[in-house]
Design a protein around this nucleic acid. Structure first.
Length: 412
DNA sequence: TCTGGGGTCCTAGGACCC
DNA sequence: TCTGGGGTCCTAGGACCC
């Protein structure tokens, strides 16, 4: 069988490039796209001008400013990025049905059939993609072409920005000889250190290591590590719809300041539960396991989970369970809290069936009403009154959020 | 005012059942 | 009555990805 032609397309500094396209005054300057610059946030993306100062993704704004005092901070616009990404993915879809969206700014394309049917050279096809994205959005990308996803991903990283690198099967071994293990997707800092301690620094060395040794050290992972070192990967490019089932849904929030005020923590927790529940409902899921994550001021953290008999998509139910977990494991607080998170897993895609519990039915009605309002007016038009603690601390009824005042509704 | 937020997968121990 | 073994579920934590 002839070798596959797999593309990995990686948008260059995606969020930052979008912002520079939208706002010409940002072009050619070191910029950082982050969350709300007034809150605790990190670098979500940085322009190449900012990278030149040593700024990297995930860095705190504090560090970024230390490296480049005149760096420009831009609050991110997620809706805009999603919108552009969807249009870019649509361009891929015109060239091949085999598109695997890897993240908002990366995708794998199986171009084997396209190139064979159209008699098109893979490099030409890649240039066409780059040209289409550039003319539509003024954005550049790096494309790696390889006989499998692993090599394609490595290849797209070799030339940035605006790169195009093709690695044929016959060239894989030579590439592995000079490629450090940490260039592999799946080898992070811990694994790198572990392997380096074994005297393994290049992929080629990893590929030569006895499987028994790797399996002894890393279990099942050892098997795939050896194959990765050899540049082998027979994973298919999974088309869009095949992978649709979500495994978990959650939200977390870093408080503006560390706090030991439990009312404030519960208020945040309730908002998070409502957001998670709303997303569950929007996608037709219910969760059976609820996890609570607390990160303390010293950055240590705990996660505790509880499974409930009947899956739910109700915010108040999530909150009840999360709060139970909190009281069981985190109360009294050992130190100030930095982050609160809640997540639902063991998801089932449900048809809304007649619930045998009166309470569930009642809550279901309220939920649909909240959803309609939220769809119409935006999230948190309606919030649980206790999420506004200490305003109305002892109630789980709803408040209608208005500009200058709060008004109780009779829903609850 | 040092370290966001959204996920996935794997491991390992204990409970529980047959 | 001196305590094997397999399977599944649950939970906690860690590593990794963007």
């Amino acid at each position: 069988m002839s070798e596959r032609v797999i593309f990995h397309v990686d948008m260059n500094a995606f969020f930052a490039s979008v912002e520079q396209r939208c706002n010409p005054s940002l072009r050619g300057k070191p910029i950082v796209v982050c969350g709300n610059p007034k809150k605790r946030t990190v670098v979500a993306a940085c322009s190449y001008e900012a990278k030149a100062f040593g700024i990297t993704n995930g860095m705190s704004i504090f560090e970024a400013k230390a490296l480049c005092p005149h760096v420009l901070l831009v609050g991110g616009n997620p809706e805009k990025y999603v919108d552009i990404a969807q249009h870019i993915f649509a361009i891929f879809g015109e060239l091949t049905p085999q598109v695997e969206i890897f993240s908002i700014d990366e995708a794998f394309l199986d171009m084997t059939g396209t190139c064979r049917l159209l008699g098109r050279d893979p490099d030409d096809a890649a240039r066409l993609i780059k040209q289409r994205i550039r003319s539509a959005y003024g954005l550049t990308c790096s494309i790696g072409i390889g006989p499998n996803k692993l090599i394609a991903k490595v290849a797209s990283n070799l030339q940035k920005p605006d790169g195009l690198v093709r690695v044929r099967q016959a060239e894989v071994h030579a590439l592995m000889t000079r490629l450090p293990i940490e260039a592999l997707c799946g080898v992070g800092p811990k694994l790198q250190k572990h392997l380096n301690d074994l005297g393994i620094t290049t992929c080629e060395e990893l590929g030569r290591t006895a499987e028994a040794l790797l399996v002894g050290k890393f279990g099942l992972l050892g098997r795939s590590l050896k194959r990765m070192g050899q540049g082998l990967d027979d994973g298919p490019v999974a088309p869009l719809a095949a992978d649709g089932q979500a495994k978990s849904m959650g939200h977390c929030y870093t408080l503006p300041r560390d706090t030991d005020n439990e009312e404030a923590i519960f208020g945040t927790l309730l908002r998070l539960c409502e957001r998670v529940a709303r997303r569950l409902r929007a996608d037709g899921y219910q969760g059976r396991t609820i996890s609570l994550t607390i990160r303390y001021a010293d950055f240590s953290g705990v996660t505790h989970a509880r499974s409930i008999p009947h899956p739910t998509d109700n915010g108040l139910r999530l909150y009840e369970v999360a709060r139970e977990i909190f009281q069981r494991y985190c109360d009294p607080l050992s130190q100030r809290v930095r982050l609160v998170g809640v997540s639902a897993s063991q998801l089932t895609q449900h048809q809304r069936q007649a619930s045998f519990l009166e309470e569930e039915v009642r809550r279901g009605r309220i939920d649909r009403c909240v959803d309609r309002l939220a769809d119409r007016f935006g999230e948190f038009t309606l919030v649980r009154a206790s999420a506004c603690a200490p305003l109305v601390p002892k109630s789980h009824g709803f408040l209608l959020k208005a500009t200058h005042h709060h008004r109780s509704l009779v829903l609850g």
